[in-house]
Simulated assay, not measured.
Amino acid sequence: MRSMYQAKRVDLFTICNYTFLTLFCLLTVYPLFFVLIGSLNDGNDYMRGGVYFFPRDFSLANYNVVLQDERLYTGFKVSIGRTVLGTLTSVFFTAMVSYAMSRNNLIGRTPYYWVHLFTLFFGGGLIPYFLVLKSLALINTFWVYIIPGLFSVFNMIILNAFFREIPEEIHESATVDGAGEFRIFLLLFIPLSAPVLATVALWNAVHHWNSFFDAMIFTTKPHLMPLQLFLMKMIREADVISNSQFVPPQVQRQISVQTIRMAAIVVSTVPILLVYPFLQRFFVTGFMVGSLKG
């Protein structure tokens, strides 16, 4: 009798749990779906309201306006380049520092750690940062996206915690076989750390893909404008674009400021959504494993 009561309680809890999670998932996904159907609706028709579950008057005019701007493709090239190169270099450099910080025989390891930790909470401000980048001749160059982001203290703490969990016997046996520290790092620690490295890579990739503030402050050349900065300008200039003389009259009748903005949001969101599922399986595993030990 007691086991039947417990089974009913478990079933009730399961039902409530799945119901809550389903509602939470719908609340999370619906805003994205709302933007998508709005971008696929005729702009003038959308202004009437009532577009909640499917496009009432299907139209691709909003995407035609967004995709015909040549700055979009320049932004895609810059964003893809900085995301790929920035992620690879940042993960590799941060992993090297994390490996060194995980070694107990590193001279000055504790002072290094506290210096890194200090920079996590305190910074010099935007103007001194700008002056440093200017003195390094990074302003108005593609490398202003890459070099300042080579090292992340937060990611170093996560990777350092993971490296310290790897049995010391692995390092000792490799040392006995004559392997140096760099070879041990590349051939042993990197392959063993694939989940947490994928997690850090995902964080870096999302940061680079969504970043626009550094481009807005540190660059003025159009060919260095990433996708997010272009889309931000397009969203701000949507009212001008919708009435532009370069947009054919028949297209102007099918677009609005709001639907152009929605189309721009979809264009910027879809690429990272396509990449995320391939790394999602590493996300929770790498973060949890890397946070077990300090």
Results as ranks from 00 to 15, higher is better:
Y46E: 09
L136V: 10
T199V: 06
V200P: 03
P271D: 09
K134E: 13
L40R: 03
A174N: 11
T83L: 03
C16P: 05
K233S: 07
Q6I: 13
G43E: 10
I157A: 05
P111I: 03
E181F: 04
S98M: 09
N41L: 02
A201D: 04
I241C: 03
N243F: 01
R2M: 06
I255R: 02
F162N: 02
S291Q: 09
N17E: 12
F287I: 15
A263L: 02
L40A: 12
R164V: 03
S173P: 05
M96P: 11
T83G: 15
F151P: 14
T220H: 13
W203C: 02
L159G: 09
L202I: 02
I127E: 00
Q254S: 15
F189Q: 09
R103T: 10
T19K: 00
S291M: 10
V196Q: 07
D177A: 08
L106W: 01
Q6C: 04
P191E: 06
K8I: 14
N210D: 09
F185P: 06
L229K: 13
L273S: 08
E237L: 14
Q228I: 05
I235S: 12
Q68R: 14
V144F: 04
R2C: 05
N204P: 03
T83E: 07
C16Q: 09
S3L: 12
A198Y: 05
I255H: 00
L279F: 05
I147S: 07
R71W: 08
V84D: 08
I255K: 01
R103V: 05
F212K: 07
L126R: 00
L231K: 02
I170Y: 14
V176E: 05
I241P: 01
R9D: 07
V35F: 04
M288C: 08
L186V: 09
F182G: 01
I147W: 03
F151I: 15
R9V: 10
D214V: 09
I37F: 12
Q280K: 11
Q250I: 01
I158R: 03
F218A: 11
L202N: 06
H171A: 11
L72Q: 01
P167I: 05
V10W: 14
N160Y: 02
L138V: 07
K8A: 13
V66E: 08
G124F: 02
F151D: 11
E172A: 12
I235N: 14
I265S: 12
S39K: 10
F93T: 15
T219Q: 10
L274E: 02
T74C: 00
F122V: 13
L292G: 14
V251E: 09
I235K: 11
L40M: 11
L120Q: 15
G178N: 11
T83D: 05
G81E: 10
F246Y: 14
S152R: 00
F282E: 00
F121E: 08
